[in-house]
Design a protein around this nucleic acid. Structure first.
Ligand SMILES: [Mn+2]
Ligand SMILES: [Mn+2]
Ligand SMILES: [Mn+2]
Ligand SMILES: [Mn+2]
Lengths: 221, 221
DNA sequence: AAATTATTTTAGATTTGCCTAAATTTTGCT
DNA sequence: AGCAAAATTTAGGCAAATCTAAAATAATTT
């Protein structure tokens, strides 16, 4: 059993590896992600190395061991299942759930998360569209496009998720009725500033900058 | 915002005051309840006194301040609401819920507990029959009897709760179909050893020692 | 009212997770 | 290759929460 601090380091490393696509995470990036000093990171990764959750070579960053990766995936699973619970059962808006899930994910009980999974009917994606690992740590993949890359007029899409989880961004999307499961139609695409003119499910016309559209994930139809 | 350790001390003190009916809790009893040394208790109660949650007079134990009592009641509320959730929604048996609620009760979010309360439809009693304080910290009382004190033949009762939360005791009651909401009928009372012969809801005949019956709370009808 | 016992507090350490500053090592650049 | 910059580790310290042992105080018994 790991402490909350140790678990948060694992999550930070997972997030870095996911974002950079690399196999190793540097002390610097971990410190940045955790909001701590590099010295603290060195202390902690040495400890997690001793617990055989991280492969650590002095001066060359860390990678996950098999057990470290599985532990991280379990944390991601717990976090996203709790987010799903908060959103679908307790009606929390999607900009409020992350912070609470950050606490709930550290509750230690395998049976709890298994029963929660069953209670929620084994959801595959969280309220932000991120995949939820199953008990074995495997994700369900799906083809998805970044709205910002789509330019075809009159084409219709279903929102799948978002790439930014920024609270204000999510609230803004709420105000535009752009949420997972909602429909969007491209009315116009402006190649000069890469902005879109969209129609939402409520037939409202929306003008969206590429700053926004690049953070929205959709599928056709 | 208090640390988990600080919160657990408040709960321990609450439990002692409830059990002893006294206004002050001694260092010794707190240490016993927490499973720590008296020295640790002295350190902590001095800290909680500085935070104005406890009234503390050196060598004479502690009592709650108004804020300390409210904080404790909020913790009891969270604990019991989570237990109710685990039992009624996730189908955990009543002997498993306490341990998990001990973790969940420390999640910090007032909105979370308010929404959970609403989701569960404002339950007044937890799965062990203990009252759940409302948002203002007030309990709903009800008249209840200790089964061990009841001797009248052929009288019928509804189980309301239990006074011991021991896991093995609860499992034993499960095996006898003695659970909150279930009916019980007194077939015989033996004054010599104070044992009861009962009939449960499944029409099974049960012989119950006073050791057991003294831990069961019931109401008439 | 002493003396003994029980309880509580103080003193001094330990562990965890964090910090800053200094030393070391690697990396990038001319 | 050599030097400067960047990253990392080490050293030393701090706060929280714990411990054991010793000292102080209160309660009980004679
Ligand atoms: Mn999240
Ligand atoms: Mn999410
Ligand atoms: Mn409980
Ligand atoms: Mn309970």
């Amino acid at each position: 059993m790991l402490s909350i601090a140790e678990e948060n380091y694992l999550k930070a490393i997972y997030k870095i590896l996911e974002k950079t696509g690399s196999k190793e995470a540097s002390t610097k990036l971990i410190a940045q992600e955790m909001g701590t000093s590099s010295a603290s990171v060195t202390d902690m990764i040495r400890k997690l190395n001793e617990k055989e959750l991280l492969n650590y070579e002095k001066y060359y960053g860390v990678s996950f061991t098999k057990e470290g990766l599985k532990y991280s995936l379990d944390l991601i699973r717990k976090h996203r299942l709790w987010e799903y619970f908060l959103h679908t059962q307790l009606q929390f808006s999607w900009d409020k759930i992350h912070e609470i899930a950050e606490q709930l994910e550290h509750v230690k009980s395998e049976e709890l998360i298994d029963r929660l999974d069953q209670f929620l009917d084994y959801p595959k994606y969280d309220p932000h569209g991120d995949p939820i690992p199953n008990k074995n740590g495997s994700f369900t993949f799906r083809t998805q496009f970044i709205l910002g890359n789509l330019t075809e007029k009159n084409k219709e899409f279903i929102v799948l998720g978002v790439r930014s989880h920024d609270s204000e961004f999510l609230q803004y999307l709420d105000s535009l009725v752009i949420q997972p499961g909602r429909r969007l139609k491209i009315l116009e695409y402006n190649a000069f500033d890469q902005s879109h003119l969209l129609q939402n499910e409520d037939h409202k016309i929306l003008s969206i900058s590429n700053k926004i559209s690049n953070e929205i994930l959709v599928k056709e139809l």
